[in-house]
Each structure stands twice: as C-alpha cells, then as structure tokens.
C-alpha cells in the first residue's frame, strides 16, 4: 500500500458509508450561554464514533464560525472547553479506540502507535485518520447549527490529524497544529525518545528485523507528504527540546513545506509553547474565524 492508495481507499470507503448521525442535547453539561450535544455517527470499518458539540445560544441558528478540535493521543477526548465556545460552534471528535468510540476496538496507551505497524494495512492508527475526515462530515452533516468559516485545531496526534484533514478538505479555512506527531520522519526513529514516539523504539528493539516495514508504514501518514496540499493558513508550534512528539527539525521542515505556515518555535519540550502559545493560538483562531 502507498500513501496515495491508502487515501484513495479511505475516501472511497467514506463515500459509501452512510453517516447515520444522531444528536442528543446533554442538559447536564449545557450552559446558559451554549448548548452541549452528544453526537454519534458511523465511521468506516463498522466503527461508531462519538463527539461533543457545543452551539452558542446567541446567533439565531447561524451560520456560526466553527472549530473542530482533533483528538490527542490519549484514551479520553475532552468535553468542550475553550473561550471560543461562547461565539462559535465547537466540536471535539474522538477517533476509533478512544472512550465512547471503543465499541469494536479499544486503544491502549502506550500501544496504539505501534498496533499493527508491522503490517501496513492493519496499522490501527490509519483508522484515526479516516475518522478525522469523518468528523468533518459529521460537523457539516449535523442539522443543529449552520456552519460558517471552519478551522481545525489539534495537538500531538491531533496536530497531524488536523494537517492531514486540511490537505483533503478545501472547506477548512485555518489550521492550528501544535507539536504535530512526526510520523514518517527520521527524527521519530531516534533511540531514547519519550512516549509516544518512544513506542516506535520499543517496537524496533523487540523486532529489529521489521525496521523497513515500520518505516514504510509510518510513511503512509507522514505529514510532510501532504503538507504542500494544505491551502489554509496554518499556525504551527513546537518546542526546541521536544524529544517525544515533534522534534524541532521535523517542525522546521514541515513549516518550510506548508504553503502558508507560521511556525512558532519555543524554548519548551513536548509542551511546546505552553501557556504563551495557548494565548497566541486562541487569538489567531479568533481572527481566522472572524471573531475579532
């Protein structure tokens, strides 16, 4: 399988899989200023996915600017929390294997990154990328609120999911990718990395003869191979001392490949720019979404 054939297959499967979306308002977590919904929808491969959706009460049904928050590398994907939820639709979508999306497959941490990595097509992480595209389908397919300008945000794995999704969905108007996971980059194969990239080192230590297979599999989701197709303006962040998620050489190469990237490199590790970047990102997204 090549990256091109993987994405072609994925798009075909998405096209033939009905969304079957259902939404229920969660009265407990809804607030005076916004309503919270639980979304469930069908993904490829027979999986069902879960997402949190918040919709501002002000605005008369929209269209609303929208922020789709891609999931982190963890079993739990947050309920909505961002100051933007007052004025924008915000969706936090889980991928298969995460909590509430784990009926057919439950991911482990550490473990997900190398689950099936020796076997290409069977690599569990491929499903997360298909599910990221599906999240856009669900956000645009729900009928609770009309969606206007749309931005993606993600950190770590979520950063890579956001970039891959933006490269395939021209509807995306802006991307904020914090410390995107450097899948497929030689920096991910260095010994002694922290988790999650350290999982690859664990795997290669156990099965050194599979290195070529692992490199080929990781190449399926290499953010660098898709970067040139991301038309949306992209805010990238990374830490100079990151040895677990997004090593700085990868971030710099990625920024150079993206057509419209603003790389913020901080004197941090895997936390990237931490609080300072969180403020910068919030302002950047607000501006891109027309929220001032």
């Amino acid at each position: 399988m090549t990256p091109a054939s993987f994405w072609e297959m994925t798009e075909a499967q998405l096209a033939e899989t009905p969304l079957d979306l259902s939404a229920s308002r969660d009265a407990f977590y809804s607030q005076p200023e916004w309503d919270v919904y639980r979304l469930n929808y069908r993904a490829t491969g027979g999986h069902w996915l879960f997402a949190w959706l918040s919709v501002p009460k002000a605005g008369d049904g929209g269209p609303y600017p929208a922020l789709l928050r891609m999931p982190d590398y963890a079993s739990v994907h947050d309920i909505i929390y961002t100051p933007l939820r007052h004025r924008a639709v915000v969706m936090n979508a889980a991928h298969r294997g995460q909590r509430n999306s784990d009926g057919a497959y439950r991911a482990s941490y550490p473990g997900l990154l190398t689950d099936g990595i020796g076997d290409g097509e069977g690599w569990a992480l491929l499903g997360a990328f298909a599910d990221a595209l599906r999240a856009v389908d669900a956000l645009l397919g729900q009928t609770i609120a009309e969606i206007g300008p749309l931005a993606l945000w993600g950190a770590g794995l979520g950063g890579s999911l956001a970039l891959a999704t933006a490269s395939r969905r021209p509807r995306i108007g802006a991307v904020a990718a914090d410390t995107p996971l450097s899948l497929g980059h030689p920096a991910a194969l260095e010994p002694g990395l922290g988790y999650p990239l350290g999982e690859i080192g664990d795997y290669l230590r156990a099965w050194p003869g599979r290195r070529a297979d692992v490199e080929r599999t990781l190449g399926l989701l290499d953010p660098l191979s898709d970067a040139a197709r991301v038309a949306a303006p992209t805010l990238l962040s990374a830490g100079r001392f990151d040895r677990a998620t997004c090593p700085a050489p990868f971030a710099e190469e990625l920024a150079a490949t993206l057509p419209n990237a603003d790389l913020r490199l901080y004197d941090g590790a895997a936390e990237g720019g931490g609080h300072i970047h969180a403020q910068a990102r919030e302002a950047w997204l607000s501006q891109r979404l027309g929220l001032g």
Partner: peptide
Amino acid sequence: PDSGHGNAH
C-alpha cells in the same frame, strides 16, 4: 509566572 496548567517548562 507565565505558565498555565501543567505546562511550566
């Protein structure tokens, strides 16, 4: 100072 939850370098 200048750090948020869980991210003081």
